[in-house]
């Protein structure tokens, strides 16, 4: 019970963080549209939007890249995970104004031919059920493998626990990450 309370508190804090960069801060009441230049999957995009608009919606509705998904809007489920430079970030809680000139990579830009070791391993392991969360899972796993090419079960559990799969394909996600790590092992 005690432990559960603690984790609830931590989550509340996350929510507060997500909210503070979004809507409730009175500073953002006066909305000024602004032009932002973004690099997504090595292409340049120019958008004229509210600076507080989360990157997720710029990617989906303005850049037209719908592979990145909306799940919760408060950085709790991981469906919206993209790469911000080398890091996996929750694009639903990153205001477009804070992106700067760092390169953004989405699932569509993870590999040119859909042959990233994780993409191949995901198909071979037959991971997806409904498939909706899987782009976020793969993007998160790709960032993990970059930093830790041979993760243990515990490393995988730790790194992947921010991504919810409602179909509960966790067993196969774990297996696919290991399979990809083995395959990529020789290359890196």
């Amino acid at each position: 019970m005690g432990k559960y309370r603690l984790s609830r508190k931590r989550k509340k804090f996350d929510l507060f963080r997500a909210e503070s960069i979004n809507f409730k801060n009175p500073l953002f009441k006066a909305i000024i549209m602004a032009v932002f230049n973004l690099t997504i999957n090595r292409k340049n995009y120019k958008v004229d939007v509210d600076p507080q608009m989360p990157l997720l919606w710029v990617i989906r509705d303005f850049a037209g890249l719908t592979g990145t998904k909306y799940g919760c809007g408060i950085a709790q489920c991981g469906a919206c995970t993209v790469h911000y430079g080398e890091d996996a970030v929750r694009s639903c809680s990153l205001p477009v104004s804070s992106v700067g000139d760092k390169a953004i990579t989405t699932i569509e830009g993870l590999s040119e031919k859909g042959d990233h070791p994780l993409q191949l391993a995901w198909d071979e392991t037959d991971v997806p059920q409904c498939g909706y969360c899987q782009a976020g899972q793969i993007m998160n796993a790709a960032a993990l493998l970059k930093k830790n090419p041979h993760p243990s079960d515990e490393d995988i559990d730790e790194a992947m626990s921010g991504n919810i799969c409602r179909c509960c394909t966790y067993k196969r996600i774990r297996k696919a990450i290991k399979r990809a790590a083995e395959k990529a092992g020789g290359r890196s």
Partner: peptide, 8 residues
């Protein structure tokens, strides 16, 4: 649909 799912 795996290939289409994993490439977004």
């Amino acid at each position: 649909d795996n290939k289409a799912i994993v490439t977004g």
